[in-house]
Every structure is written in C-alpha cells, then in structure tokens.
Design a protein around this nucleic acid. Structure first.
Lengths: 222, 222
DNA sequence: TAGATTGTTAATCGATTAACAATC
DNA sequence: TAGATTGTTAATCGATTAACAATC
C-alpha cells in the first residue's frame, strides 16, 4: 500500500485519526467486520460526509452497500499513523505526573515504548519506576542517541519546560508531547503537541457557563 | 464589566483563551504592564490580526500605540473563563494517573479544588491521597451533590469510562474532563473535553513522518 | 506632528456539509 | 432488479489573514 501525499491531510483530520483507530480497534474486538460511514458518524459525533471524505483522502476505500472493512481500516490507520513498528519514548520529569506516565499501560498497546526517564533531582536519580531507572539530565543526550528515542514527553515544572525542550531537540528528538501549560518555541520541523491538562479544565469551566447561557437562550426562543 | 454574548466566541478562540491567560500571567510576574498584539503573536505563534480579533470579540480593548494593559487582560480572561471563584472537582479512578492528578499542584492556582476521589477497588477505598480519602463509587452521587462538585475528571480504564460518565451526569456534574481514549456520548448540555494522552502521542507519530516528508519536498523544490 | 498600534471591514483560505451520480 | 452506501463535486460555513482608516 502506497501512501498518498500526506500533505493533503488537514490538521483536523490528523486530529481525528487516533479517534478512528481507537474506535475501529474496539469494533475489531467485537468481531464486527463491516462498518458504514453512517454508523461511524453516529458513534463519533461526526457526519457521514466527513467520514467518507476522510477515508477517501486516506485512500481507505469502502464498498457500496457494505461499508468499510474494519480490518482494512485498522491496517490503513496503523500505517498512516506510523505505528507499524515500536517507537521509543523518553520522559523528562519524574514527579507525580511523570511517574504516572511511566507506569501508564495505555502506551505499549500503541507501540510506544517508554525506555528512559530523566530528572534533575539527585535524590531520586537511580531510583526505579517500574522497570526503568531514573537518570540525571547529564545522561539525556547520550541515552537519547543510544536508544534512538524519537519522542520526548515533558512533565517538568513550567519554568523548566522550554529549557528541557531545547535540550531534547539538541539531543535529536523528533517530536515533543508537553504537559506544561506554557507555549514552547521550537523549530518548525519539530512537532509539539500540548496535552493541556490544566488548560482543558479552563476550557470546561468556560463551556459550563456558555452551555448554560446557550440553553437559556434556546429556552427563551422556544 | 458586562460579558458580551458568549455565543460569538468560536471554538477556536475558546481553545486559545487558556493560552492567553497563562502567558498574560507570566507577563504579570515579569512586571510587564503593556503588551502589543504583535509581541503576543510572536510569543504564541499566532498572527497579530488573530489576537486583535480575539480581544475585540472578548471586549478587552487596548490603546493605540501602547497596546493592551496586561493587568486588564488578566481580569478579562479570568472573568471570561469563569474562574473568579473556586470550582470543585472530583476525580474518578485512583490508579496511577488519578493519583498523580490528585496531587497535581497546577490545579489550585486556577481555582480548581480537587475535593473528592472515587474508585471501585475495595482495597484502596479509605486510603489517603494527599489530604483526600478515596471513596467508593456508591458515595459518588451523594458527595457530588453535597460538595457541589461541578467538574468530573475520568481516569478509569477505557471500558468503564462511559459508565462513569453516565453516573457523573446522573449525579449532576456539569462538565467532564476525560483521560480515556474512547469517545464519550453525553447530552449536548454537558461539555466534555478529552485530554488525549495516548492520542496525542499518535498525532506526534504521524506528524514526525509528515514533517519529514514536507521537509524533503521543500528541499526538492529549492 | 509623526509614527505606532488598535479596531474593524473585506478578502482569503480551509474545513464541513449537502447532494447526487456511480456502484455493488 | 431495487435499494443501500460509497466517492466526489459543489455549496456552505467558519476561521484566519490582510489591509487600512481611526486613534492615541
């Protein structure tokens, strides 16, 4: 299977890809072989049009009257997401969150191998989290190169986040997942995704109000 | 300060609000009094046009030649985000992640008070995480009502996520932050934000490839 | 005053939805 | 065959950017 030019894939579609994969894998578990764009749309709060556009763009074709083959969709999505083979990941910051992430079981299922964890605190360097030993920041560059680590997860206090990002990039990391609230400045060729825990709560706080207001307005209208 | 009709605020702006707040608070710490749309744009990888449009929409006006008053921006943003007063939050799922979230120090700064944590596992019910005692799921409805908890954080295994969401909504929760990868089906008036840890990694995996391909293409062009 | 920066309108860009012919 | 569902084109919708007059 040749990949189409990925330049065609829009940011919003990229954002939907993991959602598709996770749902499709759930269907596989349930031994469902075929799924229509309409069924997918209902399950994922999308329109069937969007789903057909997306799959067309990904070159995952379906069959009239039957829908899309679930197994084929998974194969497609795994390939497009680039997780046919394991990807090595490092965590920087072994506080509560870093600790929890190192033990998180959800990663391995998607071929993300947490194979190093770093911290600046000498008191915890050398200690174990699961099977991994916490290492000092001075080992960062060497270990990342040695183990061919591609993705760095940043779970340090926000004041240190930019510095850690710079060091990860210097060490040759290819992408960053940041749990810090601050905006990280990185070269254009290093994708950064922010896992916005606190900011997500702020969004909900806003939406709670907004939804209520909208609901009130609708009540007034009717 | 009256709030404009919030219906005008687009989803993309909602998404930027927390970013603005966090950056503005950093400027305040640095005792910076005025900031221009151009400076903000450079710091946050946006265009000055977007920033002026956003602030205009929020009714946060600036002054020609000076820019925007940082203190006023913070006041505006706090009000719009609805965090002038503390908001009570409950966590469901006291595994690694739930545990880390309960101890996370970033929440309190934005007035999110973690005031309950629930789990289904009888072995850990009654144990402490920081100042909070893990409670059983049968206490969920009562405690949420008693403590006027508005936001529920879901950090349970994905198979249980939808059920927990239903129970939280039944208990009267107003918004949900989910750490599960599955898409949650909820009534329209209950906002759900997904903190997509695993899915974020999947996105990075995709982008690493895509960025490389784009870079290659650009090299070919030049 | 001259120049910088806002606020706002209009233009562009991109994503979603609608519609329907093609197909199984 | 008849009917359901895809694949694709065109229309709509919304968000971002450009441009510039107003203003301090």
């Amino acid at each position: 299977m040749m990949l189409k030019n990925l330049g065609n894939i829009s940011p919003s579609l990229i954002h939907r890809l993991p959602t598709y994969l996770i749902h499709v894998q759930e269907l596989l578990k349930q031994k469902i072989e075929w799924v229509s764009s309409d069924e997918l749309a209902k399950a994922l709060d999308l329109t069937s049009s969007t789903i057909r556009q997306d799959f067309s763009c990904l070159d995952c074709s379906g069959i009239s009257k039957k829908g899309y083959n679930v197994q084929f969709l998974e194969t497609c999505l795994l390939k497009i997401l680039g997780i046919e083979y394991p990807i090595n990941v490092a965590i920087v910051g072994a506080g509560n969150l870093g600790h929890a992430l190192a033990l998180h079981e959800g990663f391995i299922h998607y071929q993300f191998i947490i194979c190093a964890i770093f911290d600046i605190n000498p008191e915890i360097i050398g200690k174990r989290i699961g099977k991994i030993i916490i290492q000092g920041m001075d080992s960062l560059k060497r270990v990342i190169r040695q183990k061919k680590i591609k993705i760095g997860i940043i779970s340090v206090p926000y004041l240190a986040a930019q510095d850690v990002a710079d060091r990860l990039i210097d060490a040759g990391i290819q992408g960053i997942l940041s749990f810090s609230s601050v905006h990280l400045n990185t070269p254009r060729n290093i994708p950064v995704v922010n896992s916005r825990i606190v900011t997500n709560l702020l969004e909900i706080s806003f939406m709670i109000r907004n939804v209520q207001q909208n609901t009130n307005e609708k009540e007034k209208e009717s």
